[in-house]
């Protein structure tokens, strides 16, 4: 028991827990709507594209997270426009953007002179290495995303759940979607700091999928999902530290294991009824 508490006594661990709890709960809430909108591929594309932003940041001397957020927001604004332009179908466009941006990011990082961050830390995340400055940036972006989300939550839910009804109700659906995409892009980028580009979708999808198994209404979904995400993240963090395993993958695996257990429990409950 003492060992468990001791681990959380380290400053680097405290920073990681704060960042992890805030970002994972934010990602989880966004994930509820992302899954409803069937926009997982969008989040994946933004995450991969953000590597180019990171590389540009390193190249020009801007904080990589800030540069990646700016780049990802631009991508998030461009992608929905492809929906309405039929020259290239949107899934093909995303299929192009994903490897292109990631490849471009890796190349730019390799030609950047002087100190550069490890590519692997962007692919799989390294939240234990988060600095005070990075934590501050992550918190700042999280607060901005959180405030806009709370203000626009009703519009986001209506557009994500029933776009036709949203249009009939007179909502400017494209504007609402653009705001959501921008918030999602920011969340994805700050989330990659935790679990990396490759695993970020898990942070968005798994807590929502787990909560959905037991929730009976939207209120329970939005209350339960961040709690589930926090448990997954803190548990994953702790296991990674005590087993000296990589943090991002361990958070993703822990989240996956909790989801599988929840699925098993739900199946059992249905069978016993």
């Amino acid at each position: 028991m003492n060992e468990i508490i001791e681990v959380f006594g380290f400053e680097f661990m405290q920073r990681a827990v704060v960042a992890g709890v805030v970002v994972s709960s934010l990602a989880a809430v966004m994930g509820v709507l992302m899954v409803l909108k069937k926009a997982s591929f969008f989040a994946d594309a933004v995450a991969h594209a953000s590597l180019t932003g990171v590389a540009i940041g390193v190249l020009v001397g801007v904080d990589p997270v800030v540069a990646a957020v700016i780049y990802a927001v631009l991508v998030a604004i461009v992608i929905p426009k492809k929906k309405t332009e039929s020259l290239v179908p949107v899934d093909s466009f995303l299929g192009f953007l994903l490897p292109f941006s990631m490849g471009m990011g890796a190349i730019l990082l390799s030609v950047t002179p002087g100190y550069k961050p490890e590519l692997i830390s962007f692919l799989f995340g390294n939240i234990l290495a988060i600095s005070r400055f990075e934590l501050m940036i992550v918190m700042l972006f999280s607060v901005v995303v959180g405030i806009v989300f709370v203000v626009m939550r009703k519009q986001f839910l209506l557009v994500a759940f029933d776009e036709v009804q949203a249009r009939v109700s007179g909502l400017r659906v494209k504007t609402v979607e653009a705001w959501f995409n921008v918030l999602l892009a920011i969340t994805v980028v700050i989330g990659t700091k935790m679990v990396g580009i490759v695993l970020i979708n898990g942070l968005l999808v798994i807590p929502a999928a787990t909560t959905r198994l037991f929730a009976r209404n939207v209120g329970q979904m939005f209350m339960g999902t961040p709690i589930v995400a926090m448990v997954m993240t803190v548990l994953g963090l702790w296991i990674s530290v005590v087993t000296e395993m990589p943090t991002g993958p361990m958070i993703a695996v822990t989240a996956g294991m909790i989801f599988l257990m929840a699925l098993g429990l739900k199946s059992l409950i249905i069978r016993l009824r």
């Binding site: 009703k154 209506l158 009804q165």
Partner: peptide
């Protein structure tokens, strides 16, 4: 999707 009748009808009242 987990949504109650109450929430579904009230969702359009923004």
């Amino acid at each position: 999707f987990p949504m109650s009748v109450n929430e579904f009808v009230g969702m359009v009242v923004l």
